[in-house]
Structures are given as C-alpha cells and as structure tokens.
C-alpha cells in the first residue's frame, strides 16, 4: 500500500517544532525513525495531514552523562543504545533490550522516543526504563516538564504527551551500586517478533546476609501499558534469596498483570509466561543458570 499525500514540515529548531505543533494541533504528527508511524499510515490507521520531521534536530540526539544521571535524546536510535559506552552497569539493561528489537534495519531507524511515544504495550525499551526509574522530559513553548515514564504511558497507543509537546529526552538516574539485571523477551520465534511477554529485572543484594535489597520488576505485553510488578517486588525486597521465594514472587507477578487474548497468544498463556519469565529473569540476574529463553 502506498502512503497518502501529506505536507512535510522541516523545522530548523525546537522552537519551530513547538510553533508548528501549536499551529496545526492534531493535524500534525512528529516523525522520528518512522518505523511505526509510516506503517500505520500505509495501513490507513492514521492519516495525518502534516508530518513534522524531527530527524535533523541535533538537540534531540545523543546520550549525555551528567554526574548522577544519563540523558538520552529522544532521537537516539536503538542501535546507538546498543553501542553506547555510556550504557554501562545498570544502564546496560537498556542496551540489552535494544538488541532484541526487530531487525538491524529497524534498529538503525527506530528511536527511543518513537518507541515510547508509540506506546505499544510490547515496547521493548519500556520495561527496562521502568526499572531504571526513567523520567521523560516533555517540551513545549511553555517550557519543560518531567514526569516519570510510568505516568507517561497511559494506555495502548496513549501517552501523557499534550498536543503541543514533544518528548525531548529520557532521563535515567544512577542505578544502585551493584545492580544485577536482565531482560527476557518471549516471542513466537527467536527474532523479529513482538514480545508475547517481556520482563525486565533489576535487583541489588546483600551478599553477607544473602538477601535481596532492592527489587524492581517490570512487565511488557501483559497490561494496557508496560507495568511494574510491585506486589512481586515487595515480596522479594529485603527477604532471603531462595528458589522458593523467587517462584512465589513470580506467581504474584502473574497475578498482578492484566494480560489480553489476541491472535498472538491467549491471556492465560501470557499470565503463565509471566510466572516463568519472572522466575527465570530474577534467577538469571543473580547468575543462576536458566534454560535458553526467548529472543
């Protein structure tokens, strides 16, 4: 299917973008990597009259390290995340998730901002960002505002982005010292698939007392948005590390998600897989052996 005609707006600065957004409201859409947007337009699911090309805006590019945080420009591509030397230690979780997105071709186009604004429940960057306590910086003529990613993602395809705003950057605070982490993604095949279920985990432990300290779990594809599994986190936090405890927490996670049935999987299967994947992910983050899993 061919794209329908639209007007192409090439702003030269962020201010231009803001003005265009004010002028055209919902008639205009921002174009980043385009890997989701152009497909939706080809399928006639959305037909914007105007596209605002963000790609040339260098303000939205690059990963910047400050003392206690990392600022990732919205136009940072998945492949840039994979390769960035800044994404070390706990932040590396994001790079790990980026490698599991689509294909190399898609990863060379798709951006972190696009992935979040598209707001798919299966967005691969979201669960890692949730456990990394990411906030997003939203920008408009009125200035900047920062909200936690968790509050930004409001539903399938829905975000807290106002009509006059763009997502400018993603801000990651420093992860706890000694963070252990992993990202598991189950698809129908071992590549090029949307997650049926994905799990991001980040934990810290007290090696002497053999207990969990902080435990953060996030789930993809099993609720209207990627979510934190707080009940399961609570169950593990501060408690002794043990297979039984992990299994029980995994069951709790399975109970607290709200999966749907679609043509990719049933809700029951997804729920069951949350249990399996959370257990495996926590174990893997601790260095326990697990069977080869997912993509």
């Amino acid at each position: 299917m061919r794209l329908k005609p639209f007007e192409f707006l090439n702003p030269s600065s962020l201010e231009d973008v803001f003005e265009l957004l004010v002028r055209y409201g919902n008639e205009a859409k921002c174009l980043a990597g385009g890997t989701d947007l152009l497909v939706q337009m080809k399928q006639r699911r959305i037909l914007p009259k105007r596209l605002i090309n963000l790609l040339p805006l260098s303000e939205l590019k690059g990963i910047h390290k400050a003392e206690d945080s990392l600022r990732i420009g919205a136009l940072t591509r998945h492949v840039d995340l994979e390769r960035s030397a800044f994404l070390e230690k706990g932040w590396n979780l994001l790079a790990l998730a980026a490698t599991k997105i689509g294909s190399p071709q898609i990863r060379h186009l798709g951006t972190i901002g696009g992935n979040l604004c598209n707001a798919s429940p299966s967005a691969d960057t979201a669960p890692p960002l949730l456990v990394l306590h990411a906030t997003v910086c939203l920008s408009s003529l009125k200035g900047n505002r920062q909200i936690p990613l968790e509050a930004f993602l409001t539903g399938p395809g829905q975000t807290g982005l106002r009509e006059d705003e763009i997502l400018k950057e993603v801000i990651l605070p420093k992860p706890p010292e000694g963070s252990l982490f992993t990202y598991l993604k189950l698809g129908r095949r071992k590549s090029m698939d949307l997650a049926l279920v994905s799990v991001a985990v980040l934990v810290t432990i007290n090696p002497e007392r053999k207990t969990f300290e902080q435990v953060r779990l996030a789930l993809g594809s099993v609720a209207p948005t990627p979510i934190r599994a707080r009940a399961a986190e609570k169950q593990l936090g501060g408690n002794l590390i043990g297979e039984e405890a992990i299994r029980e927490a995994a069951e709790t996670a399975a109970q607290e998600c709200q999966p749907m049935t679609d043509l990719r999987a049933t809700a029951e299967y997804r729920r069951e897989m949350v249990k399996v994947l959370v257990e495996r992910a926590v174990k893997q983050s601790l260095g326990f052996p697990i069977p080869p899993t997912g993509i």
């Binding site: 129908r188 095949r189 071992k190 590549s191 090029m192 698939d193 949307l194 043509l263 990719r264």
Partner: peptide, 26 residues
C-alpha cells in the same frame, strides 16, 4: 508456527508480522 488465522472469513494476520515463519535463528 505457521498459521493463517481466519475469523469469519477474514485473514487476521495478512502480513509477515503476525504470519510468523522461521527466521535464521529458529
């Protein structure tokens, strides 16, 4: 894995995203 999902005569997965086939890793 391969399956054309047909509901009331309509193919629900008429694309390579949801008509899944083995890739080089499978």
């Amino acid at each position: 894995m391969e399956n054309m999902v047909v509901e009331k005569g309509k193919v629900l997965n008429p694309d390579f995203r949801d008509y899944v086939m083995p890739g080089p890793l499978d």
